[in-house]
């Protein structure tokens, strides 16, 4: 019973980890850029969700759509003004541009929103479903369902729409895509917007149980990288598997080891996977 409970918890939280990390892997897949500032967009999404709740009275699960839209637009601007300029620069310069971006967003949020911890109150955030001896946390379940929906939507978009196909073409070979009449610049812009927008969406979705403040991104950044690398950098399906893997590892490891060591277990699994299967758990050789 205890194991099943831990497994259920792990799957639920894993879905959330997946949705916040899909954006990171998308950005990498299409642009080849490791975005250290990704978690800051999570924080922005949380703030948008919070403000939508505080000003408009919207539940964060609905506010998440607004969070997505706002951060999508912001992402397009950031890609156009900053990221685009370093696409041909050495990869190290790209990474550190995003580190600069991280510092700027975090402190802009500190200036704009103040340092207070903010959290929403919703009627369901302290309720749980009971199935026999099993507890299923409602906010976790809601976040999980939202993650599934957004994952499906992304999959449809990438595989069924012209935009999605054009984006994948750009990811494979930007030059060839341009020759086929695809505006590669535009595709990259949309991909970045979509990537950070999805992360922001995930941020709003976790608001019912997580507090937002300007440095909340730091709690997620390493976790997000673990998820995408475990699954396979650049693979959307991989992010989902990676998210599940991280959620379940964290939850199950707590049964055998002190909770304090949960990240140690996680990182050791991470290093082992990297050493044995650098392409990640999903997908063939890259």
């Amino acid at each position: 019973m205890v194991v099943i409970q831990a497994l259920v918890d792990g799957i639920l939280i894993g879905g959330v980890y997946a949705v916040v990390s899909i954006g990171l892997t998308l950005v990498f897949g299409v642009m080849g850029i490791v975005n250290f500032a990704q978690a800051e967009f999570l924080m922005l999404g949380m703030f948008v969700g919070y403000l939508a709740w505080a000003w408009l009275g919207l539940d964060p699960l609905i506010g998440s759509v607004i969070a997505f839209a706002v951060v999508f637009a912001l992402g397009c601007v950031v890609q156009h003004t900053l990221i685009r300029r370093v696409l041909r620069a050495p990869p190290v310069a790209q990474i550190f541009l995003t580190v600069g971006l991280l510092i700027v967003i975090e402190n802009a949020a500190l200036l704009g929103f103040g340092s207070q911890f903010r959290s929403v109150t919703t009627p369901y955030q302290t309720s749980a479903l009971r199935l026999g001896d099993l507890f299923i946390s409602v906010p976790y379940l809601a976040a999980f369902l939202m993650s599934v929906v957004s994952g499906l939507a992304l999959w449809l978009f990438m595989n069924r729409s012209w935009y999605g196909r054009a984006m994948r073409a750009t990811a494979q070979d930007g030059m060839a895509a341009s020759l086929m009449g695809i505006d590669a610049d535009r595709m990259r812009r949309i991909a970045f917007g979509l990537g950070v927008g999805l992360t922001a969406f995930g941020g709003a979705v976790i608001l019912p149980y997580f507090t937002v403040h300007p440095t909340v991104g730091a709690q997620f950044v390493v976790l997000m990288f673990t998820v995408v690398v475990l699954g396979g950098l650049g693979s959307v399906a991989g992010a989902i598997v990676g998210g599940q893997a991280v959620g379940i590892i964290q939850s199950l490891s707590a049964m055998a080891f002190p909770v304090q060591l949960q990240n140690l277990v996680l990182f050791l699994v991470f290093i082992t996977v990297l050493a044995l299967r650098p392409q990640g758990l999903v997908g063939g050789a890259r």
Partner: peptide, 20 residues
């Protein structure tokens, strides 16, 4: 008697332990 990492993203394992 459980320590947990600063910046924990999911406290459910702690509460499961507390319940037991």
């Amino acid at each position: 008697d459980e320590a947990y990492p600063l910046g924990i993203t999911d406290v459910t394992p702690l509460i499961n332990k507390l319940r037991g």
